[in-house]
Amino acid sequence: MSNIKEFDCRPVSQEGAESPMAWTHQHHESRPAGQNPGVRIAEKAFLGHLILRGGAIVLDEAVRDILGIALPGRPNTMTQNDAGTHSVQWLGPDEWLVIVPGGEEAELETKLRKALGDAHFSIVNVSGGQTVLTLSGANVREVLMKSVVYDVHPSAFPVGKGVTTVFAKATTIIRRPAEDHWELVVRRSFADYTYRWLLDAAAEYGVTQERA
């Protein structure tokens, strides 16, 4: 058993907690949406993000046992449970991103460490470092086409795919968990920039922002 000291960095109460989007929401008023907005932007705030690194076979076994979903073995893919609340995404040949509902990440980390035992692995809790923006609506693909160099056509980007790429010069994880539903995982320091880029790029189609 490893002698790593674990620490649940989530406060007991979420009162006063601020997501990476807090500054943006405080400093920019919500724009009025048109009649039939082409793009809807929402934030999935305060989720639990873990970075798993290690060998695919041992990690797959542990993740299957504990989360009940398989580790995506093929590059640039993601797996999720039926409800879409828990997901595992391939980031590199020895690196995966696990996103779970907020508050579950510390317990998950403990369970994974126990299951993995003496295997060669690393688990890092990055929940505070990034946030998830969801995009939906008829014109999402047009907005993404303006922003990323990656091909987002359905033939190149089917449901279940997820890539790390350049979004308007910022490093962003883009994933497509459902047919009409895209997610951006953005770094805290790029959240305001990315969000305002999205508002600007989506303005011509009409955009609504759902604020938590």
């Binding site: 093929r74 590059p75 640039n76 160099v149 790429t165 350049v166």
Partner: peptide
């Protein structure tokens, strides 16, 4: 060779 696909030079 790790991502198994073509990507832009920017990356």
């Amino acid at each position: 060779p790790y991502c198994d696909e073509y990507r832009e030079e920017e990356e």
